[in-house]
Nucleic acid binder design. Structure first.
Length: 281
DNA sequence: CGACTCTCCTGGGTGC
DNA sequence: TGCACCCAGGAGAGTC
């Protein structure tokens, strides 16, 4: 399950292996992979032909490659199981290969492989350097454009639980289920804590925790718990970074020894320490 | 505008 | 061994 650190690893791989190379051909092997590209597969492949990715950009979990020519970019979201692989062109097609991009220089292909097909790619206009479909999402906490004070103001104006707000990409992008649980544990906040009860210092502490858990993962090249996740060069994205709560049901909290609990929330799992992260009354 | 629910999809794991 | 489930989850669509 690629989250922001994993996606950043992929972005770096694209910058190294794909930027500057002219696309000779693209092929869509599964229509669902380009479902958000409304003009369809033919328009997608025609639109890519002959163009050169100029850079590799990221906001939250979205990746994009601005292209030579018109103000457009290839936009990708990996979803749960998406991979962008750079592989020798003789390599046989992967079982779940969805989009296949080849280059004029005869070098390695760029392949979008996605078992569960929650991910997608598309060709989209850029507006002020940002792809149109993601104009509504907030900057991620590592961007210059991210405004801590504005985040605190908007968070306190919400009437919802803190975890729901952390996962809301229009408030802060790039935080998924795993790092939301990790950051809440670090900041000693229960997932159901009402946002309007958070003080500004507590929000600052939470933001610091979000940045810390994600940069720690990034330092190790990304963390993943799903063997499906592979980075841009085909290497496994799995690293040994120990998580404090995610996936650790019934195991002792490293701060107090209390068994970690798992609760269903928003149709997914929330892991927390019932002692360090007291449920709000 | 905001809160909230539903839905999309596949295959590994589990229990009988 | 086979089969019917269950589960993982980001984010857009839709409702109120």
């Amino acid at each position: 399950m690629p989250e922001l650190p994993e996606v950043e690893v992929v972005r770096r791989g694209l910058a190294q292996w794909v930027v500057g190379r002219e696309i000779s051909a693209a092929e869509v092997l599964h229509p669902r992979a380009i479902r958000r590209h409304l003009p369809g597969a033919d328009a997608f492949t025609e639109g890519l032909k002959g163009r050169v990715p100029l850079s590799a950009e990221r906001r939250g979990k979205y990746l994009w490659l601005p292209l030579s020519g018109a103000e457009e970019a290839i936009l990708a979201h990996l979803g749960m199981s998406g991979q962008l692989l750079v592989v020798r062109r003789e390599t046989p097609p992967e079982k779940h290969l969805r989009v296949w991009i080849r280059f004029e220089d005869g070098g390695p292909d760029l392949r979008f492989v996605d078992q569960r097909t929650f991910g997608h790619v598309m060709l989209t206009p850029l507006t002020g350097g940002v792809p149109e479909p993601i104009a509504h999402i907030a900057p991620d906490p590592f961007e210059e454009a991210f405004d801590d004070a504005e985040f605190a103001r908007r968070l306190r104006a919400r009437r919802t639980e803190i975890k729901r707000a952390l996962l809301d990409q229009s408030l802060i992008s790039g935080v998924g289920n795993i790092y939301a649980d990790e950051a809440l544990w670090m900041a000693r906040l229960h997932w159901a804590r009402p946002t309007e009860t958070l003080t500004r210092p507590k929000i600052a502490e939470l933001l610091a925790a979000v940045r810390e858990v994600m940069s720690a993962a990034l330092d190790q090249g990304g963390t993943s718990f799903d063997s499906l996740y592979v980075n841009v060069n085909g290497e496994s994205g799995y690293f040994e970074r120990s998580l404090e709560v995610y996936g650790r049901r019934d195991l002792p909290c490293s701060r107090c020894g209390t068994p970690i609990r798992r609760e269903a929330f928003m149709n997914r799992s929330s892991y927390f320490c019932p002692r360090c992260q007291r449920r709000p009354r």
